[in-house]
Design a protein around this nucleic acid. Sequence first.
DNA 1: TACTATTTTTAGATTTGTCTAAATTTAATA
DNA 2: TATTAAATTTAGACAAATCTAAAAATAGTA
Lengths: 224, 224
Amino acid sequence: MYQPTATEENYLKTIYHLSNTGIKSVNTSSIATSMETTAASVTDMLRKLSDKEWINYEKYKGVKITRKGEKVALGIIRKHRLWEVFLTNILDFEWDEVHHMAEELEHVSSEELIKRLDTFLGHPKFDPHGDPIPDQTGKMESHDKFNLSAGEAGEKYIITGVTDHSTLFLKHLRKYGLLPGVTVSIAEIMDYDKSMLVKVNKDKFHLSLEVSKNILIKKYVSSK
Amino acid sequence: MYQPTATEENYLKTIYHLSNTGIKSVNTSSIATSMETTAASVTDMLRKLSDKEWINYEKYKGVKITRKGEKVALGIIRKHRLWEVFLTNILDFEWDEVHHMAEELEHVSSEELIKRLDTFLGHPKFDPHGDPIPDQTGKMESHDKFNLSAGEAGEKYIITGVTDHSTLFLKHLRKYGLLPGVTVSIAEIMDYDKSMLVKVNKDKFHLSLEVSKNILIKKYVSSK
DNA sequence: TACTATTTTTAGATTTGTCTAAATTTAATA
DNA sequence: TATTAAATTTAGACAAATCTAAAAATAGTA
């Protein structure tokens, strides 16, 4: 059993995300784009990851993550999301400020540290962006999320997360108070551009399709 | 102004410690011993650190840390010690368990993070081992510590720190409840081997010179 | 199917930090 | 002071992660 380097951990995390959230097959160039590196660098790394049995890789045939690799990826994702909870809930950072710090903290190796951090935080199930936190065995909740852009006029929803994690987008949402847990009702959907008029608490405002496509929601149910 | 790598930070930290606590001049081999590496590697690194003006270095003449280098070193020491406080006070680790984790956490770059951690912890002045925590400008407390081995029979002292930070030693002290802040009175000092009989709370036990030499104390003053 | 266009891989370099072994410099001692 | 001993530096090599440019394989299309 090998100990992954921080770089290997980052590759596995990216491959895991592309496998699960992306539509296209996980190929060299999609990894290169995600990681802001070159295809040549990715090819080099894929051979290493394959040697260590974290992925199945055949030249020109793309990549499939193995059980072992998934376990590594989920471990990193767990650390990342727990540190994000720590940074927002304990150190009072805003949800759009924590990503970069968590990217560094996730590579701190101690398993015992993360176990105690989890306990200290009260075993949170979701991070500040609404993404589920895997437990020690890799299991996590997954309520059937869908996009706000698929919501219907007159209906009430609860925000559960986002699909765009960029600082720019998160800051934009923060300005409107559009955070996970918040209730939104769709007042009207414009035929012309699919933009929508939404109500949050007493406020009413306009959201472009660009924005609503990147907000995840679930149906509002009054009794919990 | 350069951004130091984690490795450069570790070298500067070691050079700072050797400059301030060690007796001998800071030469290549003492750095190599401290860092468990070879003299050749140290020489390579000294040239890099010198290029970046963190040390003054002349071939064969040893090393002197510059103001700039000292600032970097104190920044790392500040982070290390604040994380140690976090790990013991918040996550309930024992004082002999935190060093390795803090060595990783100290390289997390965000200054804002450490500033907020400091606030969250209540601006502690000392870490769990009794070592002073530098503030943002690099200043720190330094009460005139001396070794328990220099204490006198019949006198009462307060433990303020240790000079040996090894897990083995810290675990040993923990067994006896010999932690910073604890009051110790010396009942008797043996002429033969300079070992001492000490009283801590209701317990009485024997400490070898080897042990007492590595415990730092200050005089006990009843009113605060 | 044949020919582009795209994607992917290889070849060869570079940077950081490390090593061993050899050469050089400084220190110690007869 | 001459010579041995110890410390230090250089030379050359290696592993990890990266890059550019060129070659090879796959996909798309006339």
